[in-house]
Amino acid sequence: MKLFDCPVIGKRPISEFDYCGEVRRPPLDADETAWADFVFNRNGAPQVLREWWYHRPTGRWYIMERDTLKDEVQRFIDPQEVRYDIPA
């Protein structure tokens, strides 16, 4: 069984987490083309991605940097690093 070594809750089986895709920032103020690109297109090639993972038993969200070729988590990210303001 594959384990994630989480700095907050320790070693947990990966099957306890839901994968929720790349952390992305919406274009907020953009035309339809840019929105379509945001909604549908993805960075699909192998690379290090920042991704959302949801830990079901504790109900917490985590952000991790993972190499999608080697399946190695490189870093846990503080959500503050990816936060952005929604324009009023």
Partner: peptide, 13 residues
């Protein structure tokens, strides 16, 4: 499989 991965590894899960 539940997450993106560029690999043809098999898993026990």
């Amino acid at each position: 499989d539940p997450s993106v991965l560029h690999s043809t590894r098999s898993s026990f899960d």
